[in-house]
Amino acid sequence: MNSDNSNIFKKHHYLLSVLLVSTSIALIFHIIFYFYDVPILEYFGRGGPGNNEAFGVFFDDFGQNPSFIFVGIAVLFYFVSFIPGLSEKLAKYRVLAAYVFFFAGFGYLFSISFKTFFARPRPGDIIPLGGELPFVHAWEIGTESFDDAYHASFPSGHTFAASLLYSVPFLFLPMQDKKKKQVLFTISISLVTIWCILMGAGRVHDNAHFPSDTLWSTYIGFMCAYVTYFFILKVEDQIEAGPWKDEWRDKSIPLIKRPSPLWAFSLLITLVLMEAGCLVFAIGIKELLNAALNLNLPMLTQYLADEGITLSPYIVSAVLIGVGGIFIGMFLHLTKLNMAKRPSEVVKKNRASTNVV
Protein backbone atom coordinates (compact mmCIF):
# COMPACT_ATOMS: atom_id res chain seq x y z
CA MET A 1 0.00 0.00 0.00
CA ASN A 2 2.94 2.34 0.59
CA SER A 3 3.95 2.20 -3.08
CA ASP A 4 0.31 2.74 -4.06
CA ASN A 5 0.17 5.76 -1.77
CA SER A 6 3.34 7.25 -3.24
CA ASN A 7 1.96 6.86 -6.76
CA ILE A 8 -1.34 8.42 -5.69
CA PHE A 9 0.39 11.40 -4.13
CA LYS A 10 2.54 11.90 -7.22
CA LYS A 11 -0.54 12.01 -9.39
CA HIS A 12 -2.71 13.94 -6.94
CA HIS A 13 -0.15 15.80 -4.84
CA TYR A 14 -2.74 17.83 -2.91
CA LEU A 15 -4.27 14.65 -1.47
CA LEU A 16 -1.39 14.24 0.97
CA SER A 17 -2.11 17.69 2.39
CA VAL A 18 -5.79 16.85 2.70
CA LEU A 19 -5.04 13.61 4.55
CA LEU A 20 -2.54 15.23 6.91
CA VAL A 21 -4.76 18.21 7.66
CA SER A 22 -7.91 16.14 8.18
CA THR A 23 -6.13 13.65 10.44
CA SER A 24 -4.52 16.43 12.47
CA ILE A 25 -7.84 18.23 12.89
CA ALA A 26 -9.56 15.00 13.94
CA LEU A 27 -6.92 14.28 16.58
CA ILE A 28 -6.87 17.85 17.90
CA PHE A 29 -10.63 18.02 18.27
CA HIS A 30 -10.70 14.53 19.76
CA ILE A 31 -8.49 15.82 22.56
CA ILE A 32 -10.73 18.86 23.01
CA PHE A 33 -13.90 16.78 23.03
CA TYR A 34 -12.33 14.29 25.42
CA PHE A 35 -12.64 16.98 28.07
CA TYR A 36 -15.62 18.96 26.76
CA ASP A 37 -18.00 16.42 25.19
CA VAL A 38 -20.54 16.69 28.01
CA PRO A 39 -20.15 20.45 28.71
CA ILE A 40 -20.68 21.26 25.03
CA LEU A 41 -23.75 19.05 24.95
CA GLU A 42 -25.09 20.61 28.14
CA TYR A 43 -24.77 24.05 26.57
CA PHE A 44 -26.03 23.33 23.05
CA GLY A 45 -28.25 20.30 23.68
CA ARG A 46 -31.95 20.47 24.44
CA GLY A 47 -32.63 22.63 27.46
CA GLY A 48 -29.22 24.29 27.24
CA PRO A 49 -28.77 28.06 26.86
CA GLY A 50 -27.26 27.69 23.38
CA ASN A 51 -29.79 25.24 22.01
CA ASN A 52 -31.59 25.79 18.73
CA GLU A 53 -34.20 23.06 18.64
CA ALA A 54 -35.47 23.91 15.15
CA PHE A 55 -31.93 23.61 13.80
CA GLY A 56 -31.54 20.17 15.34
CA VAL A 57 -34.94 18.95 14.16
CA PHE A 58 -34.27 20.15 10.61
CA PHE A 59 -31.07 18.13 10.29
CA ASP A 60 -32.67 15.14 11.99
CA ASP A 61 -35.50 15.16 9.45
CA PHE A 62 -33.81 16.32 6.26
CA GLY A 63 -30.03 16.30 6.73
CA GLN A 64 -29.52 12.84 5.25
CA ASN A 65 -31.69 13.45 2.20
CA PRO A 66 -29.03 14.95 -0.12
CA SER A 67 -26.82 11.89 0.39
CA PHE A 68 -29.65 9.42 -0.12
CA ILE A 69 -30.82 11.23 -3.26
CA PHE A 70 -27.29 11.34 -4.65
CA VAL A 71 -26.64 7.66 -3.96
CA GLY A 72 -30.06 6.78 -5.38
CA ILE A 73 -29.26 8.64 -8.60
CA ALA A 74 -25.92 6.82 -8.81
CA VAL A 75 -27.60 3.42 -8.42
CA LEU A 76 -30.19 4.33 -11.06
CA PHE A 77 -27.49 5.59 -13.42
CA TYR A 78 -25.48 2.40 -12.89
CA PHE A 79 -28.30 0.14 -14.05
CA VAL A 80 -29.44 2.51 -16.81
CA SER A 81 -25.91 2.37 -18.20
CA PHE A 82 -26.53 -1.26 -19.20
CA ILE A 83 -29.49 -0.42 -21.46
CA PRO A 84 -28.66 -1.22 -25.10
CA GLY A 85 -28.10 1.97 -27.02
CA LEU A 86 -27.00 3.84 -23.91
CA SER A 87 -24.37 1.37 -22.80
CA GLU A 88 -21.65 2.65 -25.14
CA LYS A 89 -22.24 6.29 -24.19
CA LEU A 90 -22.49 5.76 -20.45
CA ALA A 91 -19.97 2.96 -19.96
CA LYS A 92 -17.10 5.31 -19.12
CA TYR A 93 -19.08 6.78 -16.25
CA ARG A 94 -20.47 3.50 -14.93
CA VAL A 95 -17.47 2.93 -12.70
CA LEU A 96 -17.99 6.34 -11.09
CA ALA A 97 -21.60 5.47 -10.31
CA ALA A 98 -20.41 2.12 -8.97
CA TYR A 99 -17.95 3.95 -6.73
CA VAL A 100 -20.72 6.08 -5.21
CA PHE A 101 -23.03 3.21 -4.28
CA PHE A 102 -20.12 0.95 -3.33
CA PHE A 103 -18.79 3.52 -0.87
CA ALA A 104 -22.29 4.00 0.53
CA GLY A 105 -22.84 0.29 1.14
CA PHE A 106 -19.35 -0.51 2.38
CA GLY A 107 -19.11 2.59 4.54
CA TYR A 108 -22.56 2.46 6.08
CA LEU A 109 -22.09 -1.09 7.36
CA PHE A 110 -18.73 0.04 8.69
CA SER A 111 -20.56 2.71 10.69
CA ILE A 112 -23.19 0.27 11.99
CA SER A 113 -20.44 -2.17 12.98
CA PHE A 114 -18.72 0.50 15.06
CA LYS A 115 -22.00 1.37 16.76
CA THR A 116 -22.70 -2.25 17.63
CA PHE A 117 -19.20 -2.98 18.88
CA PHE A 118 -18.54 0.16 20.92
CA ALA A 119 -22.12 0.46 22.26
CA ARG A 120 -21.61 4.01 23.47
CA PRO A 121 -24.69 5.28 25.33
CA ARG A 122 -26.64 8.14 23.81
CA PRO A 123 -26.49 11.51 25.61
CA GLY A 124 -29.93 11.08 27.14
CA ASP A 125 -28.89 7.74 28.64
CA ILE A 126 -25.82 8.86 30.59
CA ILE A 127 -25.81 9.68 34.30
CA PRO A 128 -24.47 13.27 33.96
CA LEU A 129 -27.48 14.14 31.80
CA GLY A 130 -30.12 12.36 33.86
CA GLY A 131 -29.79 8.84 32.48
CA GLU A 132 -28.71 5.59 34.09
CA LEU A 133 -25.57 4.60 32.18
CA PRO A 134 -22.00 5.80 32.75
CA PHE A 135 -20.48 8.22 30.27
CA VAL A 136 -17.70 6.85 28.05
CA HIS A 137 -15.49 8.65 25.57
CA ALA A 138 -15.29 8.03 21.85
CA TRP A 139 -13.39 4.81 21.03
CA GLU A 140 -14.18 3.42 24.48
CA ILE A 141 -16.54 0.48 24.91
CA GLY A 142 -19.81 1.52 26.48
CA THR A 143 -22.70 -0.14 28.26
CA GLU A 144 -25.59 0.34 25.85
CA SER A 145 -27.82 -2.75 25.95
CA PHE A 146 -27.01 -5.44 23.39
CA ASP A 147 -30.30 -5.14 21.52
CA ASP A 148 -29.95 -1.33 21.28
CA ALA A 149 -26.25 -1.22 20.45
CA TYR A 150 -26.80 -1.08 16.69
CA HIS A 151 -28.12 2.47 17.08
CA ALA A 152 -25.75 3.54 19.84
CA SER A 153 -24.10 6.94 19.91
CA PHE A 154 -20.69 6.32 18.35
CA PRO A 155 -20.37 7.12 15.52
CA SER A 156 -23.24 9.35 14.42
CA GLY A 157 -25.27 7.63 11.72
CA HIS A 158 -26.81 10.87 10.44
CA THR A 159 -23.40 12.52 10.17
CA PHE A 160 -21.97 9.48 8.45
CA ALA A 161 -24.86 9.62 5.99
CA ALA A 162 -23.93 13.23 5.29
CA SER A 163 -20.32 12.16 4.78
CA LEU A 164 -21.40 9.89 1.92
CA LEU A 165 -21.19 13.07 -0.14
CA TYR A 166 -17.41 12.77 0.19
CA SER A 167 -17.68 10.62 -2.92
CA VAL A 168 -18.38 13.82 -4.89
CA PRO A 169 -14.85 15.30 -4.69
CA PHE A 170 -13.33 12.01 -5.82
CA LEU A 171 -15.49 12.01 -8.94
CA PHE A 172 -13.41 14.91 -10.24
CA LEU A 173 -10.07 13.11 -9.92
CA PRO A 174 -10.19 11.29 -13.29
CA MET A 175 -10.34 14.66 -15.09
CA GLN A 176 -7.42 15.40 -17.39
CA ASP A 177 -7.21 19.12 -16.62
CA LYS A 178 -5.04 19.09 -13.49
CA LYS A 179 -5.70 22.66 -12.42
CA LYS A 180 -9.46 22.42 -12.89
CA LYS A 181 -9.48 19.04 -11.16
CA GLN A 182 -7.67 20.40 -8.11
CA VAL A 183 -9.95 23.43 -7.86
CA LEU A 184 -13.13 21.36 -8.12
CA PHE A 185 -11.81 18.79 -5.65
CA THR A 186 -10.88 21.48 -3.13
CA ILE A 187 -14.17 23.35 -3.43
CA SER A 188 -16.33 20.24 -3.26
CA ILE A 189 -14.48 18.66 -0.34
CA SER A 190 -14.75 21.95 1.56
CA LEU A 191 -18.50 22.17 0.92
CA VAL A 192 -19.06 18.56 1.97
CA THR A 193 -17.04 19.12 5.15
CA ILE A 194 -19.11 22.20 5.98
CA TRP A 195 -22.28 20.17 5.40
CA CYS A 196 -21.01 17.42 7.72
CA ILE A 197 -20.15 20.00 10.39
CA LEU A 198 -23.65 21.45 10.13
CA MET A 199 -25.14 17.97 10.37
CA GLY A 200 -22.96 17.21 13.39
CA ALA A 201 -23.98 20.45 15.07
CA GLY A 202 -27.61 19.61 14.37
CA ARG A 203 -27.24 16.23 16.05
CA VAL A 204 -25.78 17.93 19.13
CA HIS A 205 -28.60 20.49 19.21
CA ASP A 206 -31.06 17.60 18.89
CA ASN A 207 -29.42 15.98 21.93
CA ALA A 208 -28.84 12.85 19.88
CA HIS A 209 -25.03 12.72 19.82
CA PHE A 210 -21.87 13.93 21.47
CA PRO A 211 -19.61 16.23 19.43
CA SER A 212 -16.97 13.48 19.25
CA ASP A 213 -19.49 11.13 17.62
CA THR A 214 -19.99 13.54 14.76
CA LEU A 215 -16.30 14.37 14.49
CA TRP A 216 -15.28 10.78 13.92
CA SER A 217 -18.24 10.06 11.65
CA THR A 218 -17.01 12.79 9.33
CA TYR A 219 -13.43 11.58 9.41
CA ILE A 220 -14.34 7.90 8.99
CA GLY A 221 -16.60 8.83 6.08
CA PHE A 222 -13.80 10.67 4.32
CA MET A 223 -11.32 7.84 4.89
CA CYS A 224 -13.82 5.26 3.61
CA ALA A 225 -14.26 7.37 0.46
CA TYR A 226 -10.48 7.55 0.04
CA VAL A 227 -9.81 3.85 0.64
CA THR A 228 -12.71 2.76 -1.59
CA TYR A 229 -11.57 4.96 -4.47
CA PHE A 230 -7.87 4.17 -4.46
CA PHE A 231 -7.44 0.74 -2.87
CA ILE A 232 -10.64 -1.28 -3.21
CA LEU A 233 -12.13 -0.23 -6.53
CA LYS A 234 -9.03 1.51 -7.90
CA VAL A 235 -11.41 3.69 -9.86
CA GLU A 236 -8.92 5.30 -12.20
CA ASP A 237 -7.50 1.91 -13.19
CA GLN A 238 -11.01 0.68 -13.99
CA ILE A 239 -11.68 3.72 -16.15
CA GLU A 240 -8.47 3.02 -18.02
CA ALA A 241 -9.55 -0.61 -18.54
CA GLY A 242 -13.13 0.43 -19.24
CA PRO A 243 -15.82 -1.55 -21.05
CA TRP A 244 -15.39 0.40 -24.28
CA LYS A 245 -12.05 -1.37 -24.80
CA ASP A 246 -11.54 -4.35 -27.12
CA GLU A 247 -10.90 -6.81 -24.29
CA TRP A 248 -14.57 -6.65 -23.34
CA ARG A 249 -15.70 -7.66 -26.83
CA ASP A 250 -13.00 -10.11 -27.87
CA LYS A 251 -14.89 -13.36 -28.48
CA SER A 252 -11.63 -15.32 -28.59
CA ILE A 253 -11.19 -14.65 -24.85
CA PRO A 254 -13.22 -17.15 -22.79
CA LEU A 255 -16.20 -15.56 -21.06
CA ILE A 256 -14.82 -16.41 -17.62
CA LYS A 257 -11.66 -14.44 -18.41
CA ARG A 258 -13.45 -11.33 -19.63
CA PRO A 259 -14.21 -8.47 -17.24
CA SER A 260 -17.63 -8.86 -15.65
CA PRO A 261 -19.99 -5.91 -16.21
CA LEU A 262 -21.36 -6.33 -12.68
CA TRP A 263 -17.97 -6.75 -11.03
CA ALA A 264 -18.51 -3.84 -8.61
CA PHE A 265 -21.87 -5.16 -7.46
CA SER A 266 -20.57 -8.67 -6.74
CA LEU A 267 -17.49 -7.27 -5.01
CA LEU A 268 -19.68 -5.10 -2.78
CA ILE A 269 -21.81 -8.08 -1.73
CA THR A 270 -18.83 -10.22 -0.73
CA LEU A 271 -17.08 -7.33 1.02
CA VAL A 272 -20.19 -6.42 3.02
CA LEU A 273 -20.67 -10.04 4.06
CA MET A 274 -17.02 -10.17 5.11
CA GLU A 275 -17.59 -7.01 7.17
CA ALA A 276 -20.55 -8.73 8.82
CA GLY A 277 -18.30 -11.68 9.65
CA CYS A 278 -15.73 -9.34 11.18
CA LEU A 279 -18.44 -7.77 13.34
CA VAL A 280 -19.69 -11.15 14.59
CA PHE A 281 -16.10 -12.25 15.28
CA ALA A 282 -15.34 -9.01 17.15
CA ILE A 283 -18.48 -9.34 19.27
CA GLY A 284 -17.44 -12.90 20.08
CA ILE A 285 -14.04 -11.69 21.28
CA LYS A 286 -15.76 -8.96 23.27
CA GLU A 287 -18.09 -11.55 24.82
CA LEU A 288 -15.11 -13.71 25.76
CA LEU A 289 -13.18 -10.84 27.35
CA ASN A 290 -16.30 -9.68 29.15
CA ALA A 291 -16.68 -13.09 30.79
CA ALA A 292 -12.98 -13.67 31.48
CA LEU A 293 -12.29 -10.21 32.92
CA ASN A 294 -15.69 -9.62 34.58
CA LEU A 295 -16.23 -6.37 32.70
CA ASN A 296 -19.99 -6.47 33.30
CA LEU A 297 -20.84 -5.25 29.82
CA PRO A 298 -24.38 -5.97 28.57
CA MET A 299 -23.59 -8.70 26.07
CA LEU A 300 -25.53 -11.30 24.10
CA THR A 301 -25.43 -13.73 27.03
CA GLN A 302 -27.32 -11.26 29.20
CA TYR A 303 -29.80 -10.53 26.42
CA LEU A 304 -30.49 -14.24 26.00
CA ALA A 305 -30.88 -14.63 29.77
CA ASP A 306 -33.47 -11.84 29.78
CA GLU A 307 -35.32 -13.81 27.10
CA GLY A 308 -35.23 -16.94 29.26
CA ILE A 309 -32.31 -18.66 27.51
CA THR A 310 -29.41 -19.43 29.83
CA LEU A 311 -26.09 -20.20 28.18
CA SER A 312 -22.49 -20.03 29.25
CA PRO A 313 -20.82 -16.86 27.93
CA TYR A 314 -17.90 -19.02 26.83
CA ILE A 315 -20.20 -21.12 24.65
CA VAL A 316 -21.79 -17.99 23.20
CA SER A 317 -18.41 -16.43 22.51
CA ALA A 318 -17.12 -19.65 20.93
CA VAL A 319 -20.14 -19.79 18.60
CA LEU A 320 -19.79 -16.13 17.64
CA ILE A 321 -16.06 -16.44 17.04
CA GLY A 322 -16.57 -19.63 15.05
CA VAL A 323 -19.38 -18.26 12.89
CA GLY A 324 -17.57 -14.97 12.40
CA GLY A 325 -14.36 -16.78 11.50
CA ILE A 326 -16.16 -18.93 8.93
CA PHE A 327 -17.77 -15.83 7.40
CA ILE A 328 -14.45 -14.01 7.30
CA GLY A 329 -12.63 -16.93 5.73
CA MET A 330 -15.32 -17.68 3.17
CA PHE A 331 -16.06 -14.14 2.09
CA LEU A 332 -12.44 -13.02 2.29
CA HIS A 333 -11.72 -15.68 -0.30
CA LEU A 334 -14.67 -14.59 -2.45
CA THR A 335 -13.66 -10.94 -2.03
CA LYS A 336 -10.16 -11.75 -3.26
CA LEU A 337 -11.65 -13.55 -6.25
CA ASN A 338 -13.84 -10.54 -6.99
CA MET A 339 -10.90 -8.18 -6.55
CA ALA A 340 -9.09 -10.25 -9.16
CA LYS A 341 -12.10 -9.80 -11.46
CA ARG A 342 -11.78 -6.02 -11.45
CA PRO A 343 -11.53 -4.97 -15.10
CA SER A 344 -8.02 -3.58 -14.68
CA GLU A 345 -6.77 -6.89 -13.28
CA VAL A 346 -8.48 -8.99 -15.96
CA VAL A 347 -7.21 -6.79 -18.77
CA LYS A 348 -3.71 -6.81 -17.29
CA LYS A 349 -3.66 -10.62 -17.12
CA ASN A 350 -5.05 -11.03 -20.61
CA ARG A 351 -2.51 -8.63 -22.08
CA ALA A 352 0.30 -10.34 -20.21
CA SER A 353 -0.73 -13.77 -21.47
CA THR A 354 -1.03 -12.39 -25.02
CA ASN A 355 2.46 -10.92 -24.83
CA VAL A 356 3.86 -14.22 -23.56
CA VAL A 357 2.30 -16.06 -26.46
Rank of each mutant, 00 (worst) to 15 (best):
L262W: 09
D60R: 08
I194K: 11
M199F: 15
L288V: 06
F77A: 06
K341S: 03
L129G: 09
A264Y: 10
L20K: 01
F117A: 03
S212F: 12
L109T: 15
P123G: 14
H333N: 01
A162G: 10
F135G: 08
F106S: 06
Y99L: 09
F135H: 09
Y34H: 01
W248E: 04
D4F: 09
G200R: 13
P298H: 10
D4I: 04
N5I: 05
A104K: 12
D177M: 05
G202N: 13
D148I: 10
N355R: 04
N294W: 08
G324V: 05
I32F: 04
L267N: 10
G329V: 05
N65F: 12
A74Y: 13
N294Q: 07
Y14G: 00
K251D: 13
M330G: 00
L90F: 14
I269H: 11
V280Q: 11
D306R: 07
T270E: 11
F62C: 03
I69D: 12
I25Q: 02
A340E: 08
G322F: 03
A208T: 11
D213L: 02
I73K: 03
D206K: 10
A352Y: 05
T214F: 14
L198D: 15
S344Y: 10
A162K: 04
L198A: 15
I253C: 08
F106Q: 09
F82G: 07
V18E: 02
E42R: 07
K286D: 11
I285R: 04
V71L: 06
I321T: 07
I189Y: 04
E307C: 05
Y43A: 05
N2D: 11
E140W: 15
L15A: 03
W195L: 15
G63M: 06
Y14A: 00
I69V: 14
F135Q: 05
I285P: 05
W195H: 13
F160H: 14
D237T: 03
F154G: 10
F117H: 02
V347F: 02
L300T: 00
T214H: 13
F154C: 13
F114M: 13
S266V: 12
S260G: 07
L16W: 06
S87T: 11
V21E: 01
I31D: 01
Y150Q: 10
W248R: 02
N2M: 11
P128E: 15
Y314M: 06
F70S: 03
M274N: 13
L90P: 08
F154M: 12
F33E: 01
G242K: 00
G56N: 08
N294V: 11
Y36M: 00
I25Y: 03
N207S: 15
A138M: 12
Q238T: 06
K234T: 02
G308A: 07
P123F: 05
G45F: 07
F185V: 03
G50H: 07
D206R: 08
F230Y: 07
P49G: 07
